[in-house]
Each structure stands twice: as structure tokens, then as C-alpha cells.
Amino acid sequence: MKTLEYLSDPTLRAMFLPGIVAGLITVVMCAVVSPLVVVKRLGFIGQGISHSAFGGVGLAAVLVAVGWMAAGGVAELLVIAVFSVGAALGMGWVGRRRETPEDTAIGLFLVGSMALGTVLVQAARAVAERGGRAADVRSWESILFGSVSTAGTGDVVVAGAVAGAVVLALWAGRRPLLFWATDEQTARAFGVPVGLVRGGLMVVLGLVVVTSMKVAGVVLASALLVLPGATALRLSSRLWSVVGWSLVVGAAGVLAGFVVAFEADWPVGPSIVLVQVVLFAGACGAGWVRAIGGRGASAATVRA
């Protein structure tokens, strides 16, 4: 068991523990908002926001390369967060008109930001090299797939602060949010400020996705936003039980994901996502077994 080996060794434990804690905090935050993302079909927006973050990564890289900003600090995360939240609000704003449907608006920001990010990261490298500085730009792999195993105490603090704010905001706004999610037009007719609710949720999604990027990268961040909720909704149709299952799936994904990553020497982010995919498949299987069992039981009742 490499996992036990890693965790019993003080040096290795100090190296991996922040990543595990940051991962758990991140995934808990994702799991709370995940059922809402699934029910409201916001998965593609999550995808759009996480890919838009790539534009923010490029912008931050340029700022680092010209020496205006330190690499890997809170300022860098802030630049990415502002860029992503701006993109999230932009998607909502552009997509509200009939001529540009929402999925088109999301696609537009997604590819636009990816393209911009690519160009900016290349430019940052060139600027850094010309300036004689080492190209202090993160590797493509860590941007695309995450680098949670290298997380430090600072990452834990950032993840904790964002998660605290996000969970508090969701809890405080849960009633208008649930009303809006059930039926937007009726919510408006009942006086719910749906613009505020929608905008607030976009900001929350932007923050969640940016924080998740450390764990799962641009490509996989939206998976953390979709999989726990999708699994939980297969298992229950009661609100608090759905949120509970979502948390269980999220946490189990992180813990099992780390174990798999340690044992098989796989990258952590993709391992977490794969475990969550397996849990989703398990929930589907459980549903089918229950359905078949139910049919069998009712047939038995009829026979009796």
C-alpha cells in the first residue's frame, strides 16, 4: 500500500496533505451547488467558465512575464477569477437575446477564451525569455488537468475562504434560488428578483470553477461540478438527501482518487474524476436493480 506509506512518512505527508485537504474543500463546495447545476442544465456553462479561465491564465501569465505580478500568488488567482466571473456574466448577458441562444453565447466565450489564452501564454513565454527571466509560466498539463498534488497551505486557505463564502451565499439565498430554479417565470411573477439570483449564481459558479481548476484543471473542472449532483439525483428526489449524497460522492471521489493516484501512479485530477464517473455508473446500476426489484415485488404481490 503506497498510500499508507506516503501518509505515514512525515515528509511525504507534509507534501501531500495540503493537496488532499484543498481537494476535499473544493469538492465539497462543488457538491453543494452540483445538483442545481444538473437540474438547471448549467453543465455547459460550467464548461464555458472553466475554459474561459484559460484566457485568465494567459492574461496572468503576461502580467507575470512583464514583472507586474508574482507567479502563483493570490493576485494571479484573482486575475483568473475576475476573468472567469466576467466571462460567466458575459455568457448570461449575450445569451439573453433571441438572436444569440445561450449555448451559442457559451461556445463563443469558450473558444474565444481558449484562443486568447493560447496566444497570451505564448506571448508571455516570449516576453519572459527576451527579458532574460525564466519562463515562469505554468505547464500546459497543470493548466489543463490540474496540479493538486503540488498544493500548499496557501491553496488550502484560498480554497477554504472561497468555499466558505460560496456555501454561505448559497445557504442565505437558498429559497429564492430554489424558487427560481423550479420555475423562472413564476418566480418573477411572485416578485423574486431573478436577475439578481441568476447573476449571483453566475458569480458563484465562476468562483467554484476557478477554485476547482487547481484540483482538476481547465478541462476537468466542470466534471466536479456535474458528477456529484448527477449521481445524487439518481439516488434520491428529496432536497437534503440529494445534497447529502452529492457531498458523499464528492468526498469519496477525492479520497478514492488520491488512493488510486498513489497506488497506480496516475495524475490526481483525472483519477478523482474517473472515480466519480464510476460512482455515477454505480448509481445508475443501483437504480436499475431497484426498478427491476420493484417490478418483481409488484408482480409477486399480484400473484399473491
Partner: peptide, 17 residues
């Protein structure tokens, strides 16, 4: 118009009104 996948009971929906 209504999101039927919402994990809410009839009573919860009515109370939100």
C-alpha cells in the same frame, strides 16, 4: 415551464410561494 427534475416535494414548492 416547471423544472420537474427539482428534488422538491409539493409542500416545499407551495411553501416557497
Amino acid at each position: 415551464q416547471v423544472e420537474l427534475g427539482m428534488p422538491l416535494s409539493v409542500r416545499e414548492v407551495v411553501r416557497l410561494g
